[in-house]
Design a protein around this nucleic acid. Structure first.
Length: 1006
RNA sequence: GCGCACGUGGCGGAAUUGGCAGACGCGCCAGACUUAGGAUCUGGUACCGCAAGGUGUGAAGGUUCAAGUCCUUUCGUGCGCACCA
């Protein structure tokens, strides 16, 4: 039911232009070396029609990227078109400015829902995926976006995931060289001395090689029995893709593991997730932690997004310190416990030590008396998921191991505890506890009655606020003395009153009670004490400065069917031990097998293990049965778009250099300087405004904030590896990134089925058309903001488009059209021929006032587009239309220019009116999308007479009209001459007159 | 708790570097045209006041001739992280 009369026939106009664009391949982007078809509007614009577009003649590039969607069964929601419309408007704007715009779309198509559906129904996930893609395609195309569909990709395409597997091979066959600080082919990895020559059994000494971390040692569960195996193990331990036992997030419901980053999402959906040790493929993202952190400074992302990545990477500087185990019966290598601390300056205050329950030394150091308690506690800790651990974190728990360590600075024997507030996966899995200066240690020490030694004196304000009430003294020096003696007097386990009531002091202060016969930190500020103690520890071989990251290596395998199979096979060595080997590139793509049943095997193997013929190869080796996570495909899709059909490489070198290349400005000025000056190329300002010198990679990337730490961190990591290996030319993939804000329901709540406030884009399109939908999404407010949906608001912009229509169209012809339409059997585009232009549109010259209105609009729209302020750009066009509706005559040139401004926002309507405007005047319509963007003429905006506000004592009292070039004296005279102003200043002594030329006058009186 | 962002009419939001607060749109009020209006057009619309005028950008201070904008304190909202030693 048509609830109300259509504002204009968008139902005919929109399909018409979408068909036209598709037939023309109007938005195809040309790579260096492509032939530009004769008559293609891009070729016509850039003088490349029918020519080969080599690198030297192509205009500068602009790469505008959307985060490609996961094609879910639910179809598009209103959040998708928000970002897509913003990028489409900018793509059309840059195209009009003369850039070669790359604006592609594709599908992040692997994913669990299609697989779950397959498990339930037996329908192949590919079929489900393709149906969903078809629906998404229909919806997205109906919005009239100017995507280059010839570059469409899906991560599930064989031709696509072949290259995902290829990149995995690059990761597998590379290591991170710490000396050169970059990834290199594994062949450049030198073996340690003991592996260079023959010598069976020497490999076991690896465990003492200083720069092999404890993780590396854990990784080798089986002792190599010959040199070859030892070498293989060594290499495997260094690869960027490696196999390791890892604590994983196992979901018994999903029968797969999840990355740390994914846990929350699935847990919130009600899936159970447990911690479990399993062998998994890992990607060594931690090798890039430092680069991923520091390179954030080189890219144009929002502060909050950068901050999220910084938090996730979690860099902290500190020191590792070794604590000897007292009365130790263990072999030398294990007789000490290493801890990581950010506060080595408080080492004298370390009164006990805590290991994570999973720490590998726990069984060895635990005394017989404590054995049962310790094992019970370990079982208790293992039974809790990460979520439970944090939720139950209110009360500290732990048990004493019975063992003691020696504090290296004062020789004190301190008890070793285990507690789950110490995480196995961070630092060394062990801490020195300084209860006086760490809240968690303080809480633990109070609960278990452990000794608390004060080693930092707080500033006076803190002392007075927290310690004074109990200490009962006013003198600062006395206060400090009593404070610093407070805990020592405590008979080793009884707190003084002063201390019991104060919280732990965890900030920086001045060190006290920290001296031995060799070193004293007393009196030093925290920062200096850190340096001094670190130097001393290093000199004594007791520890060293280190940097720690929260970031862990990326758990890269999943026990699923619907993902990229690994290009890896497993073989047995002479001793019968399994080892892995990469397939050669010629073996790619590795296709998943055909299955009848997509469930995991009954014995818990991934679904791929069901395909015995596929798994077992003729030579006796076996295929890897894990698959890659969904994130793999999205790590590099922006590169495939550059050269989507390339059968020989993941991306061609020339295409990559052109679209991703940085530092183009000089080259471009040289290449285009002449054309810029002659006006045929992009405007010079367009080039210089565009930061080519610093723009590596994608010029603009728009998407939701939900990918702040997952996709965006993973993609940056892969890109950096590819950069190190010489496959891409920039260190960062996405130069500028903008997060679109969430669209809430009409009620201000997040849209959800259960609330019944979900807006379906198809419904909006049907009632208001694509142009109105696009316009509304942009008019709602700033792109980045969270904002509620309002269908009334859609009607508002829809009415605006109706006013645009009526600005151009003859009223009687419109009535004739409507009558013809009601009698027509089916809607058809020929009905549009009833439409005639308003007779007020003439070829006459524009009046100065009309030009001023137009150029104010050009200026505002252009500036707002540069700043991505779409909402105010639309306001500016509304103002133009509101003014133009009152014009007696509507000059053709003015109306054309307005349509060019409107075109990026409402392209269908603009095209229709553009075409009619030209045909009515017997002109051949040049391409609207490739027409040069209008330039505003500042001279036209200059006023001869301007209005100036006049204030008295800072309060606005009147507005005076003066000549635009009036000098200060004239302004002052005019201001004082105002009757209203006189009323406020007469009879009062004049103190001061402030005049800002062309802005305001402020008269200050007594 | 820590970090980041942000508080402006009945609502979404404007206000480039401190310089006429509330552009534009929604809603609402009045009118015009109409058999009709959920179409269209015109006018009005921050608050108090008949008016002159006064008051207003979460709150309280401060800087300034001038503050939504800068500074301090405080309250509130959203997002992220959360025993990371």
């Amino acid at each position: 039911m048509a609830s109300s009369r259509r504002q204009y026939p968008f139902h005919l106009i929109e399909p018409k232009w979408q068909q036209t664009w598709e037939q023309q391949q109007a938005f195809r982007a040309f790579n260096p070396g492509d032939s530009v078809p004769n008559g293609h509007p891009f070729g016509v614009r850039h003088d490349l029609s029918g020519k080969v577009a080599d690198r030297k003649v192509l205009p500068p590039k602009f790469y505008i990227l959307d985060m490609f969607p996961y094609p879910s069964g639910a179809g598009l929601h209103v959040g998708h078109p928000e970002g897509y419309t913003a990028t489409d408007i900018l793509a059309r704007y840059r195209r009009a400015q003369g850039f070669n715009v790359l604006h592609p779309m594709g599908w992040d198509a692997f994913g669990l829902p299609a697989e779950q559906y397959a498990v339930k129904t037996g329908q192949h996930p590919r079929k489900t995926t393709e149906e969903n893609i078809a629906n998404f395609t229909r919806q997205i195309k109906s919005l009239g976006f100017s995507y280059d569909w010839s570059r469409e990709i899906a991560t599930t395409d064989v031709d696509y995931f072949k290259w995902t597997q290829w990149i995995f091979l690059k990761l597998y066959n590379s290591w991170f060289n710490p000396v050169r600080n970059k990834a290199e082919p594994i062949e450049t990895l030198e073996y340690p001395p003991e592996l260079r020559s023959a010598g069976v059994g020497q490999a076991s000494r690896l465990s003492q090689t200083p720069n092999v971390s404890s993780e590396d040692r854990d990784r080798r569960d089986a002792c190599p029995t010959d040199l070859e195996a030892a070498r293989r193990a060594y290499r495997d331990s260094k690869r960027l893709a490696y196999k390791a036992m890892a604590p994983v997030n196992w979901s018994p419901d999903l029968a797969t593991i999840l990355s740390n980053e994914e846990v929350e999402e699935w847990e919130s959906k009600g899936f159970k997730i447990e911690r479990k040790q399993m062998p998994q493929w890992m990607l060594r993202i931690t090798a890039y932690a430092e680069k991923l952190l520091t390179d954030l400074d080189t890219i144009d992302w929002s502060d909050s997004l950068k901050e999220m990545q910084r938090n996730w990477i979690g860099r902290s500087e500190g020191a590792e310190v070794d604590f000897a185990i007292a009365d130790c019966q263990l072999p030398i290598a294990d007789s000490k416990i290493r801890v990581f601390t950010t506060r080595p300056d408080t080492l004298f205050g370390a009164t006990y030590m805590v290991l994570s329950p999973e720490h590998k030394l726990v069984p060895q150091i635990t005394t017989a008396e404590q054995k049962k308690a310790v094992e019970d506690y370990q079982a208790y800790a293992a039974s809790k998921s990460d979520l439970e651990r944090t939720e139950l974190a209110k009360e500290k728990t732990g048990v004493f191991t019975g063992a003691y360590a020696i504090n290296p600075v004062n020789g004190e024997k301190i008890p070793i505890w285990i507690a789950d507030y110490v995480l196995a996966s961070y630092g060394t899995g062990a801490i020195m506890a300084v209860p006086a200066h760490d809240e968690r240690d303080f809480e633990f020490a109070k609960k278990f009655n452990l000794k608390i030694n004060i080693v930092v004196t707080p500033p006076e304000s803190w002392l007075r606020a927290h310690a004074l009430p109990a200490l009962k003294t006013e003198a600062l020096s006395e206060l400090q003395r009593m404070w610093s003696e407070g805990a020592i007097d405590a008979n080793n386990n009884v707190l003084t009153d002063a201390f019991a009531k104060a919280p732990a002091f965890c900030d920086e202060g001045f060190v006290c009670n920290s001296a031995n016969s060799e070193i004293s930190l007393d009196g030093l500020p925290t920062a200096e004490a850190k340096k001094k103690i670190a130097a001393w520890l290093e000199e004594k071989g007791l520890g060293k400065k280190t940097v720690n990251f929260k970031l862990r290596d990326w758990l890269f395998s999943r026990q699923r069917y619907w993902g990229e199979p690994f290009p890896i096979i497993w073989k047995k060595d002479v001793a019968g031990n399994l080892y892995h080997e990469a397939l050669p590139e010629s073996a790619l793509p590795v296709l998943p097998p055909t299955l009848e049943d997509y469930k995991p095997t009954p014995d818990g193997q991934p679904p791929l293990a069901r395909a015995k013929d596929w798994v077992n190869l003729p030579d006796g080796s076996m295929r890897e049965t894990n698959t890659m996570p969904q994130w793999a495909g999205s790590c590099w899709y922006y590169l495939r778009y550059l050269d989507a059909k390339n059968a020989n490489a993941f991306v061609g070198k020339e295409a990559e250099a052109y679209w991703m290349g940085a530092g183009q400005l000089n080259e471009l000025n040289e290449l285009h300087g002449e054309r810029v000056k002659s006006g045929s190329g992009p405007h010079l300002t367009d080039l210089t405004n565009h930061p080519f010198n610093s723009t590596p990679g994608v010029d603009l990337y728009v998407g939701g904030t939900e990918h702040a730490v997952l996709h965006l961190l993973y993609a940056r990591f892969w890109h950096k590896v590819l950069f190190d290996l010489g496959y891409v030319s920039t260190p960062e993939p996405f130069f500028k990134l903008v997060n679109q804000g969430l669209i809430l329901g009409e009620d201000g709540q997040k849209m959800s089925k259960s609330r019944g406030n979900v807006v379906n884009p198809d419904d909006i399109l049907k009632e208001f058309g694509a142009d109105a939908f696009r316009l509304y999404e942009m008019f709602m407010g700033p792109l980045q903001d969270t904002k509620p949906w309002s269908t009334k608001g859609v009607e508002g912009v829809y009415r605006f488009l109706g006013r645009v229509w009526r600005l151009f169209v003859d009223e009687k012809a419109q009535t004739a059209f409507e009558q013809a339409e009601t009698t027509a059997a089916t809607p058809n585009q020929e009905l549009l021929d009833h439409i005639l232009l308003d007779g007020a549109i003439t070829d006459d010259a524009a009046t100065p006032a009309q030009l001023k209105t137009l150029h104010a609009c050009i200026k505002k729209v252009t500036e707002d587009l540069d700043g991505m302020r779409f909402n105010t750009a639309i306001s500016a066009m509304m103002e133009f239309v509101n003014a133009a509706l009152h014009w007696q005559t509507k000059p053709l040139a003015v109306m054309k220019t307005f349509l060019q401004l409107l075109a990026p926002f409402a392209p269908h309507l603009a095209e229709e009116l553009w075409a009619r405007l030209h045909s009515t005047f017997g002109q051949r319509a040049p391409s609207l999308p490739y027409g040069a963007w209008p330039k505003f003429d500042p001279a036209l905006l200059v006023e001869s007479e301007i209005e100036i506000p006049v204030s008295v004592n800072g309060k606005m009292r009147d507005v005076i009209k003066v000549a635009a070039d009036a000098d200060n004296a004239a302004l002052e005279t005019a201001a004082k001459a105002s009757e209203k102003i006189k009323a406020f200043i007469d009879g009062k002594p004049l103190k001061k007159v402030i005049i800002v030329p062309k802005k305001m006058v402020n008269i200050v009186v007594g």
